[in-house]
Simulated assay, not measured.
Amino acid sequence: MKITRSRDFTAERAWGAQDIANMNGITTRLHWTDQPYRWHINDGEEVFVVLDGQVEMRYRCEGVEHSQLLEVGDIFYASVGTEHVASPVGEARVLVVEKEGSV
């Protein structure tokens, strides 16, 4: 049993993470960041939940770029092959659920 208070979590670098769980090859990690990630495509599906702050999520579908501002409680689901980049507005904490070893 373990309780994690996400609002208290910080990291030494942007996108630093704390492992929460690994269940049959699916990882759940708490990330802290104050910098954008990079455009990428995960090795599988990804669930991205904003726990603190705001995150601009940009993604491409059929070659068209879209943008959505995610707020606390919002969930972004990236299906296989979805190219995307997360850019926090200030500091943000996010919970990411994805295949172990995914980008």
Rank of each mutant, 00 (worst) to 15 (best):
M1I: 11
R7N: 14
R7H: 14
R7P: 01
D8N: 12
E12W: 00
A14R: 07
A14W: 01
G16W: 03
Q18G: 03
I20M: 10
A21I: 04
N22V: 06
N24Q: 12
G25P: 15
G25R: 10
T27K: 05
T27G: 05
T28S: 15
T28V: 13
R29T: 08
L30H: 04
W32I: 02
T33C: 07
T33S: 10
T33G: 08
D34Y: 06
D34S: 13
Q35P: 02
Q35K: 15
P36C: 04
P36H: 03
Y37I: 05
R38H: 05
W39S: 00
G44K: 03
G44P: 06
E46K: 03
V47M: 15
V50W: 01
L51S: 11
G53K: 02
G53Y: 05
G53C: 03
G53N: 04
V55N: 08
M57E: 02
R58Y: 00
Y59D: 03
G63N: 08
V64A: 13
V64S: 13
E65G: 03
H66V: 06
H66S: 14
H66L: 08
S67N: 03
L69C: 12
L70A: 10
L70C: 12
V72W: 08
G73T: 09
Y77N: 07
S79M: 00
V80N: 11
G81N: 08
G81T: 11
T82G: 01
T82W: 01
E83L: 05
H84P: 05
V85H: 00
A86D: 04
S87Q: 10
S87L: 05
V89Q: 15
V89T: 14
V89H: 15
V89W: 11
G90F: 08
E91F: 00
A92L: 08
R93H: 09
K99Y: 02
E100S: 13
E100M: 07
